[in-house]
Design a protein around this nucleic acid. Sequence first.
DNA 1: GATTATTATCTCAGTAGTAAGAGTTCAATA
DNA 2: TATTGAACTCTTACTACTGAGATAATAATC
Lengths: 182, 182
Amino acid sequence: MNSPKRSPSKDHHPVKGGAPVTSDLPTTTALKLWVVLARSHAAISEVLKADIERHDLTAAEFGVMEALYHKGPQLLGEIQKKILVSSGGMTFLVDRLAKRGLAERQECSSDRRARYAALTKKGEKLMASIFPAHAAVIHSAMKGLKPADQRALTALLKELGTEAARLAAETPACKAALAEQD
Amino acid sequence: MNSPKRSPSKDHHPVKGGAPVTSDLPTTTALKLWVVLARSHAAISEVLKADIERHDLTAAEFGVMEALYHKGPQLLGEIQKKILVSSGGMTFLVDRLAKRGLAERQECSSDRRARYAALTKKGEKLMASIFPAHAAVIHSAMKGLKPADQRALTALLKELGTEAARLAAETPACKAALAEQD
DNA sequence: GATTATTATCTCAGTAGTAAGAGTTCAATA
DNA sequence: TATTGAACTCTTACTACTGAGATAATAATC
């Protein structure tokens, strides 16, 4: 029996027979996809985050550790691209891991601007002890779909993501162009 | 010609013939799916974020506005569930929108604890002026897939997300149970 | 009517992360 | 050699958000 002052019944997507009116059908399809994609991502993220936090790591910290664990020492910039943080964030993350003795910086002999990040023995040990369990959590978070469907989903997402990444890459330029118009 | 002190060639997923060794196959499938899902989500997010920021809104602010725009006045808690922020964040968001005259609080006549958030005229006008373009951006961010594939993807993601959400919902309890063991 | 549990928002301190730009180093060209 | 521009990290200032608890109202039970 709620009765707010304004009627809550004005709906810009009044669904009659299932079809919204504000947009054309392909746009509606895309909108729906985005909603579902975002929610799935959030739900899975939450499960994984809960697992990671048990070891006093943030998701970003874990991302760095994982990259180093699987691919060995890497330039900060390389890791940055993989886990999608800012350059400042990258520095901060490695600092924090270094302070805890989980990772360390190594100089690059061929380029003195660059720094490698690498796991310490302690960091490696930690990852070895928690990664298998984490992989199991991922596995279980995905159990809503059979492996075959998971592979199909992966293929579709890859296509979607590749195009979106291309678009995102050219967006800053567009942004800069628009900024000039102000 | 990079030569870090430690060899960067120790790889815990040495791919020989395409199959990693640390985990069984289903787990590998799930891991791959997670990577692709996260990257797609990030790429699309970035495109949409760039669009939203042009109007001096954060993604979360836009989420609130959008919820109100499409469904009318709602309790803060309802919106909170939809856009996945903390209760503190929800209060903060409405404050900020109110300060700018885009949204306002309305009392609930039947429950004095509760508050509705609603768009002001100004907020509604803003959304009416920017939402169609935003929908078009979403549409274009999804253009990597044909509508039919988008629908297939949506269906798969829905299944995946539903199960993950169920899992996430029971995880806190698990966390609490584990906390007692410390 | 009093008590207890639950629901809903708000407060506030703390933090992870961003953005912009500074400082180095490298590479290419004249 | 000197210069210019690009590449890589780090610094600094800042901000959006979280999380835990406070406050207040409602609902349920005795």
